[in-house]
Structures are given as structure tokens and as C-alpha cells.
């Protein structure tokens, strides 16, 4: 039987949706007993949310003022101290999990499997490599618990309706003072979160300026959609980095993805290939984005966007 410890991602008050996706991944392990670990200064609100997820047996709180901001170097020794009792330690393949999980694995002297997209057995997993152009199946012979990050776009969120017990754990380890949180600038747009939105509209370099991105925002608001961007658009300064979709940005799986003025480099396509329906609007009929689009429209985005806004 597998005993899985899932490291919760949260902002101090709200459990991130990526955690419920890790639960679904862990639940795919036969007979898994799932524990969610919440490290925070005050973990009560987040722990209560975690306890409501189905398939979760137990929620463990580790409360410490040092956990107010989730700093990998501070969290890793606390989690490693608890990890020995588990067969698997999972975190989301978000920037939070990517930063933290390898540090835990190294403290445990064990290997990590990154971006788990499917579970074949307790030791066998599928994961993408080469920007998703190759899928590999790996068999793990770990020297301790198997540490893994979960590719969140590959799993549905575990539903609510659970009633897990919440308990507290004391962890007595020295915490480093060498790494200090200074600030985080989170753009508050009021739009749906890019990683969980059912609809996403993304713009590329063809938008031409940050001002023109507002055309996209207007359409997104009409559709209740999140806004994304290609790397080229972010590099050009048209959109902030947290909107980037692709191999090194966010990997998303919305029901509807509308790519506007995006040519479709493989690094971008790897971020959207789990979308249910892809729409591409581009001036260039040869753009590679049309190879993966369910609906393609060749046209000038500055003519098509206002039309769409009127029609929707």
C-alpha cells in the first residue's frame, strides 16, 4: 500500500487548486492513503479546506512563524523530517513545487520524478520530456520515499465532500536564516486564474504593443476568460511574465483556448496541448498553430477581434 504525503500550496488563507490535482494523482496509486501537509504560520483555514477534499485521510499542520512565506530552504528540512514515514512525497509542478520538491528529495538522498502525467504503478510513471515532444515511462528505484511533482494539467481536481481529520505535528529541526522573503508582486486583475480557468485567450507578438493587449482583455472579460501570452509577447513587454503559457511558463488545460496572433512554437504548443478545444486566429496561413487548432481563422487580428467582441 502506498502512503502519500502531499505538500499543500497556498497563500496563507486559500488552498491552491494545484493541491486538489495532486490528490487525484495520488489517488491513482492503488490503495493510496493520502495525507496533506500544510506548512504555514497559521494553518487552520488552509487545513480546513484541505480536509474537505475527497480521498484525503488526514491533514497535518506544521505551524511556525518562519512559514509565513513559503520559502523552499525553510520548508524543505521540516518536510524532510516528516517524509520518512511515507512511500511517496508529492507536490504540484507549479513554480512553488518545482522550487521546493527537489530540495526535499536531496535532503532525503532520493530521486525525484518531475511532471508526473500518469501513474502506471507505485514505482512506474509517465512524464513528458523535450518540451512534451516525447513521453517517457520511468521505473523508479529510490533510496527513500519517491519524491514527485505532479503535472497539474494532466489531472482533474479532486472534488470536495471529504471529512479528513486535522492534526498538528511538531517538527524540531534547525531552520536556516540565510534566505529571506522580501516581496511578491502579484498582479490583481480580477480575471479568472490562468491555471484553472475554463476559457483562456492568449496573445502573441502580433498584438504589437501592451496597449493592444487591452483588446484581448476586453474580449476575455466578455467571455469570463483568463488571459495568457506567448513568450514572444512577454519578452517584448506586452504582458507580464505570469501570463506566459508554454514549456517554461504555465501548462494549462482549459475547455477553450483561443490563440490570437500566436504562431505556435513547439515550446508554446506544449503548454496548451491538453486544452479541450483550440481556436487559432493568425494572419499567416502557414503558422504551425493551425496544425493543432480545432478551428482556424486566417485573418488580421485587428479586424477579427472587434468582430468577435460584437458577436459574443
Amino acid at each position: 500500500m502506498s502512503k502519500v504525503l502531499i505538500v499543500a500550496e497556498h497563500d496563507g488563507t486559500t488552498l491552491n487548486a494545484s493541491t486538489a490535482k495532486c490528490v487525484s494523482c495520488a489517488h491513482a496509486l492503488a490503495g493510496a492513503e493520502i495525507t496533506i501537509l500544510v506548512c504555514a504560520a497559521d494553518a487552520s483555514a488552509v487545513a480546513a479546506q484541505a480536509a474537505r477534499l475527497q480521498h484525503v485521510a488526514r491533514v497535518v499542520k506544521v505551524e511556525n512563524p518562519a512559514n509565513e512565506h513559503l520559502v523552499a530552504a525553510v520548508l524543505a528540512p521540516q518536510i524532510a523530517a516528516l517524509a520518512g514515514a511515507y512511500s511517496h512525497v508529492f507536490g504540484p509542478s507549479t513554480t512553488f513545487g518545482k522550487d521546493l520538491m527537489p530540495r526535499i528529495a536531496a535532503l532525503l538522498g532520493t530521486a525525484q520524478v518531475s511532471d508526473i502525467m500518469a501513474i502506471e504503478s507505485a514505482t512506474r510513471f509517465r512524464r513528458p520530456i523535450y518540451a512534451g515532444n516525447v513521453i517517457t515511462t520511468v521505473e523508479v528505484e529510490a533510496d527513500g520515499p519517491i519524491v514527485g511533482t505532479v503535472r497539474t494539467a494532466s489531472f482533474e481536481a479532486a472534488p470536495e465532500g471529504g471529512t479528513a481529520a486535522v492534526e498538528s505535528a511538531d517538527v524540531n529541526v534547525d531552520l536556516p536564516a540565510h534566505t529571506r522573503f522580501v516581496s511578491v508582486s502579484a498582479a490583481k486583475s480580477g480575471r479568472p486564474d490562468l491555471q484553472t480557468a475554463r476559457r483562456v485567450i492568449s496573445g502573441g507578438r502580433a498584438l504589437g504593443s501592451a496597449e493592444n493587449f487591452s483588446l484581448l482583455y476586453r474580449l476575455a472579460d466578455k467571455l469570463g476568460a483568463a488571459v495568457g501570452a506567448s513568450r514572444a509577447a512577454v519578452d517584448a513587454g506586452y504582458a507580464p511574465n505570469d501570463l506566459q503559457v508554454g514549456q517554461t511558463g504555465k501548462i494549462i488545460a482549459p475547455d477553450l483556448y483561443i490563440a490570437i496572433g500566436i504562431s505556435g512554437a513547439i515550446q508554446h504548443l506544449t503548454g496548451i496541448k491538453d486544452a479541450r478545444t483550440i481556436v487559432a486566429i493568425n494572419k499567416d496561413p502557414e503558422a504551425p498553430i493551425f496544425e493543432v487548432a480545432d478551428y482556424g481563422l486566417v485573418g488580421d487580428l485587428f479586424e477579427v477581434l472587434p468582430e468577435l467582441e460584437k458577436l459574443l
Partner: peptide, 14 residues
């Protein structure tokens, strides 16, 4: 300055 999902995070490290 780090590129994180939420935006930009700043850490000070020794």
C-alpha cells in the same frame, strides 16, 4: 527577483 506563478517574487539570500 524570481519569476513565479503569481508574478515576481524577491528573495534576499546570503
Amino acid at each position: 527577483t524570481r519569476e513565479v506563478d503569481a508574478g515576481l517574487e524577491v528573495l534576499e539570500v546570503d
